[in-house]
Amino acid sequence: MSIHERRRGSWIITFSFIVAILLSILPLPPGLHAFMPSWLLLTTIYWSMALPHRIGIGVAWGLGLLLDVLYDTLLGQHALVMALVIFLTLHLHQRIRVVPLWQQAITIYVLCLIYMLIIFWIKGLQGVAPDFWMALISPLISALIWPAVFVFMRNLRRYYQVN
């Protein structure tokens, strides 16, 4: 029974990941794209926080690999950073879960900033160094929309009883 219980809602998790991937390659006017929050990272952080026994570093690494192919970047750069950020989230998840939403948003800002800075660092090693200040904007927007993402995902999770 417990195994059956644990498997419930896999499709909703998969579906949320697919939607996040679609959002992250949505065509936008040029210049606006750098302001997009990291949708896939936010979704993965949410699931690893809510269900740490199901969504772990391995899933994050695989999703990061997909993102690498999607963005046509160096294979493994997003994978490494996603795995690292999810490791931190798993380490902190019991402390993040209990605090109010706006405090969560601050933690999310730090996590997204770590993500962006390492991505920028790897880009710099390859010789393509974008403007440093651009690294600060996308995490800020990610943190600002975090409460909305969190509430939406929590309702989704409760409605479909994913556990």
Binding site: I18, I21, L22, I25, L26, P27, L65, L66, V69, L70, L74, L75, G76, Q77, A79, L80, I122, Q126
Partner: peptide, 29 residues
């Protein structure tokens, strides 16, 4: 993996395999 991709061509098949998974999503968008 990143070094492999940067220096050589060995991981091209992984990339190509993953791109097949990705293609429906790109098509959808």
């Amino acid at each position: 993996l990143m070094t492999l991709d940067y220096r050589t061509d060995t991981v091209r098949s992984i990339r190509a395999g993953l791109s097949v998974i990705i293609y429906p999503m790109q098509y959808l968008v």
